[in-house]
Design a protein around this nucleic acid. Structure first.
Lengths: 245, 245
DNA sequence: CAGTGGTCTAGACCACCCC
DNA sequence: GGGTGGTCTAGACCACTGA
């Protein structure tokens, strides 16, 4: 990549740097290739390391770069499209092996979830923790909140994962009447970050799903997707359009 | 909080700061209230200003804070939910006054859009630029790419906005056969940033919509939503569930 | 004008990975 | 080990806002 001069314009240096690097990535680097380290790059562009890092952070947020401590900065592959319904797999993860059930505990859900579930404050619900994999990499973690009233027959096994699967099995026996979703930006808490192989505070897309059954909100799922590597897709709203490549 | 780890893991200062500030926002501040300036806050917590800013950036990304140069840092209101279909308003913005048509030009669309439209590379298409408002504030900008073949009768007016409305009118006369969407994280380019009253590089949610008609992709919309203030909602997939508050 | 957040610098040390 | 990115500091100056 050429060491272009940074002319003095009203444009911030880090932003100009981002553009220059972005173009270099397009033309001179292959996916997976390792970039020079930050100190060298900063010297090459004649800026402080902090300024260079601002540009790299932008590019990482955009899914162009992947940085790993102790390893280096590499060119990221294009984002993977992960389907986030609403599709045929009405209940969460039915007929799908992309989700792995990790655990199930009984908790008092956070306030926003209580509002969606319309349970009484302080009431305990099942919380099934799952991880979604794609090409062997974890792309999302999820907490599925299921009031005990929704799944009266769920087994009370000792093993959390087994118990979680039992809750899910019960769920699928219900007639799903509808669902709705919301997507917003968040930052990964410590535990989510660890599961997603990211640092705390990493940008994530939070998908909140409400599942309706028996005329009320039967469950609420809060899924946390890596924002750098994922593009959330919402399937065709009409089956006609399946031909487009 | 009782559960201490066996070995106290060194949590980054900025992350701890984020947590402390977040709790303070919950308990001691009202929406719209102005925080102390960054230099004072940094001194109060005994950290460098850059470290404090890292914490503030997190909170701003999460939609908890709003910072404006020359003014100060204020407590942000809860995110507004903006509907992003697929709803009855099948074609973009039909029966909706939340969108304002700004302009219409003929361009050769960027490569990803060309791929979605399946037009020949280098072919010109109409590009309608619109802005979405919510409570008087701009929340999104959009570029709607419409191949000339889709809207043969669109007026060739001089005024860009009039021309854009003409293209949209033509669109709505077509039978919409379906649409699909994708959501991903991006950073605002200079012009989008200006329209959204943000700085370049601000985090945005990019919604890409394909509209299908006449057995092919009739239009592609690329909408850019402010990630700090918006929660994208996807309407009920079944009308049964309209009772939940 | 004074005060705010935004940008930038030149260092330092730490946590992690791999050889 | 030596090399990487991650955190942190203590300054400086700039761009913008509003009185």
């Amino acid at each position: 990549m050429g060491t272009t001069q940074l002319e003095t314009v009203p444009e911030p240096k880090y932003w100009h740097l981002r553009t220059v690097l972005s173009e270099a990535l397009d033309s001179e680097f292959a996916v997976g290739e390792v970039l020079p380290n930050e100190r060298d790059l900063a010297a090459r562009f004649g800026v402080a390391r902090a300024t260079l890092r601002q540009a790299l952070e932008q590019l990482e947020l955009e899914g162009r770069l992947q940085r790993r401590r102790g390893v280096g900065t590499t060119v990221a592959p294009p984002r993977i499209g992960v389907d986030v319904g609403p599709a045929d797999d009405s209940w969460p993860g039915i007929s799908d092996d992309t989700w792995h059930t990790d655990d199930c505990t009984d908790v008092t859900p956070p306030v926003p979830v209580v509002r969606l579930l319309a349970t009484s404050p302080g009431a305990m619900v099942h919380a099934v923790r799952r991880t979604r994999f794609n090409h062997g990499q974890p792309v999302a973690t999820e907490l599925l909140y299921v009031p005990a009233a929704t799944v009266p027959d769920a087994a009370d096994s000792d093993d959390g994962a087994t118990r979680g699967r039992s809750v899910l099995r019960e769920l699928r026996q219900l007639q799903l009447e509808g669902q709705d979703r919301a997507v917003e930006l968040g930052s990964a808490q410590a535990d989510d970050a660890r599961q997603l192989d990211r640092l705390p505070g990493a940008a994530v897309l939070v998908v909140t799903t409400r599942y309706f059954a028996s005329g009320r909100t039967a469950a609420v799922g809060v899924s946390t997707y890596r924002a750098d590597t994922c593009r959330l897709t919402f399937g065709e709203s009409d089956p006609v359009a399946l031909m487009a490549s």
